[in-house]
């Protein structure tokens, strides 16, 4: 895409252990995609094109978590060839749903699932990109939000800080004009401890927040858990809601552990 005279920044999109949904968010931009493609040289993006433009890259978007020995080597390469490295999505930012292996024995899983588990080279844990290399910005969500992705790219181009607030989902839920499903319906909702970004999508359809964007800036899960128990949630249910896409993010890990401990204390 880039002509010889082009000074457009080079963009690369990389994949590690992930479902590709966050990368596809870039393709889902549709209306905005021509403007993006006009502003950056999309040099490496195998979901979109097998053409592989050479590095180094001005901006790398990294999807997926580190789960194999090969990932460990490859993320070092990605960091070396990238001026700015931005993780996109819960996998790259928090280890993703596959980090549930951290609470179990992955070798046992492999022995049940695969006929020849010895062919599977996998690590005991699923870790975020930031556990291995310096990361310039982390974009959360499972999947990421299209508007936030565009904002990150636009902010990168302008050399400014992206406007990606770390406050709770409740802020955007109220701005959107949703009724609070927790208060008005008694529906368990993780919105008060979850970072905004999705536009309060689930509460807009009278569902509680599932915590896809991970912990907000100052989560008080202990207080929320007490309330969720009053609404009838059991300890296994509490553990379950925190152990999804961001299970090993420290505040959510602790929230699940607190739920287990408080039951032990009660029992």
């Amino acid at each position: 895409m880039a002509g010889p005279a082009s000074r457009r920044p080079k963009l690369a999109v990389w994949k590690f252990a992930s479902c590709d949904g966050c990368q596809l968010t870039l393709l889902d931009c549709e209306d905005e995609l021509p403007a993006v493609a006009g502003a950056v040289d999309i040099a490496h993006f195998t979901e979109a094109s097998s053409a592989d433009g050479p590095g180094p890259y001005d901006l790398s978007l990294v999807e997926g978590s580190i789960t194999t020995p090969d990932d460990l080597r490859r993320i070092q390469h990605v960091r070396r060839v990238s001026k700015r490295l931005v993780t996109i999505g819960a996998c790259a930012t928090a280890g993703g749903i596959q980090a549930l292996r951290d609470f179990a024995d992955v070798r046992e899983y492999a022995s049940v699932v695969y006929a020849r588990p010895e062919y599977v080279a996998t690590l005991a844990r699923s870790t975020p990109i930031s556990a291995h290399v310096p990361v310039d910005f982390e974009l959360r969500g499972c999947p990421i939000d299209k508007r936030q992705l565009l904002e990150v790219i636009a902010a990168f181009l302008a050399g400014r800080r992206p406007c990606v607030p770390a406050h709770s989902v409740c802020v955007e839920c109220k701005a959107r004009g949703n009724v609070c499903v927790l208060v008005a319906h008694g529906t368990p909702c993780l919105g008060p401890v979850t970072q905004a970004g999705c536009g309060a999508l689930c509460p807009a359809f009278n569902r509680g927040c599932y915590g896809c964007f991970g912990p907000m800036e100052s989560p008080n899960a202990r207080a929320l858990n007490a309330r969720l128990r009053e609404l009838g949630m059991s300890t296994p249910e509490l553990v379950r809601i925190y152990r999804t896409f961001n299970a090993t993010e420290e505040p959510f890990r602790q929230a699940a552990e607190q739920a287990e401990q408080s039951e032990e204390a009660d029992g």
Binding site: I153, A155, C163
Partner: peptide, 24 residues
Amino acid sequence: LACTNCTMACPTCFCTTVEDATDF
């Protein structure tokens, strides 16, 4: 919870911030 619901529901709370956006 520092969720902000009290301030958002309050009819007098008026605090705002500004967001700057740029195009491509």
